[in-house]
Lab assay of single mutants.
Amino acid sequence: MSDQEAKPSTEDLGDKKEGEYIKLKVIGQDSSEIHFKVKMTTHLKKLKESYCQRQGVPMNSLRFLFEGQRIADNHTPKELGMEEEDVIEVYQEQTGGHSTV
C-alpha cells in the first residue's frame, strides 16, 4: 500500500510543476525593474502585453530577450528553461537604418 501512496504523490508533484508559478524580473533599458509572477505554462505574450500596457507603449515597439534570445509570443517559461528570479531584458525595437557599404 505504501507504494501506491507514494506513486500518486509523485504524480501530484509532476502536476504541481506544470502549474507552478515563478517570479520573473523584467528590466528596461533605463534599468527599471518590474516583477511578474507567471505560470510555467503561460505564453509569455501575456507578460509582454502587461509590461507594455504599464509602460504605455505599443508591444511592437519593444523586444524582449532572455539569455540573449528573442522571446516569441508563444514561448512559455518552461520551454525556455526559466527559473525563479530570472531576468528578461527589454530593448527599444530598432527599425529602419541603412547599409554603410
Rank of each mutant, 00 (worst) to 15 (best):
G14N: 13
G81H: 15
Q69D: 12
P8H: 06
H98T: 08
G96W: 01
G97L: 07
L47R: 02
Q4T: 14
K37W: 07
F64C: 04
Y91I: 00
D30P: 06
D30L: 06
L62W: 01
D3P: 06
S61V: 02
K48H: 00
E33N: 05
F36P: 03
L47W: 01
K7L: 08
K23E: 10
I22D: 01
L62Y: 10
A72R: 12
S99Q: 09
G19M: 15
H75K: 06
Q55H: 09
F36Y: 09
R54A: 02
I88L: 07
D12Y: 10
L62V: 15
V90W: 01
Q53V: 09
P77S: 03
I34E: 02
G28N: 07
V101I: 12
E85M: 15
C52V: 05
I27F: 10
H75D: 12
P58F: 01
P77Q: 03
L24A: 03
K48I: 05
G68I: 00
H35K: 11
L47P: 03
K48F: 00
N74R: 14
T41V: 00
E11D: 11
Y91C: 07
E67C: 11
H75Y: 06
H98E: 09
Q53W: 15
H75M: 07
P77I: 00
G97E: 01
G19C: 11
L13Y: 12
L47T: 03
Q55K: 15
E5C: 00
G28Q: 05
M59K: 15
G56S: 12
I27R: 04
T76M: 00
K78R: 15
T42L: 09
T41N: 04
D86E: 10
K46N: 09
F36N: 01
G97T: 05
P58T: 04
I27Q: 04
K16A: 12
M1A: 08
P58S: 13
Y21W: 11
I22N: 02
G96S: 06
L44D: 03
K46S: 06
T41E: 04
E33P: 04
G14Y: 15
Q4D: 04
I71G: 04
Q69T: 14
V26I: 08
H75C: 12
C52M: 02
D73S: 00
I22L: 07
G19D: 12
L13I: 11
Q92S: 13
I22G: 05
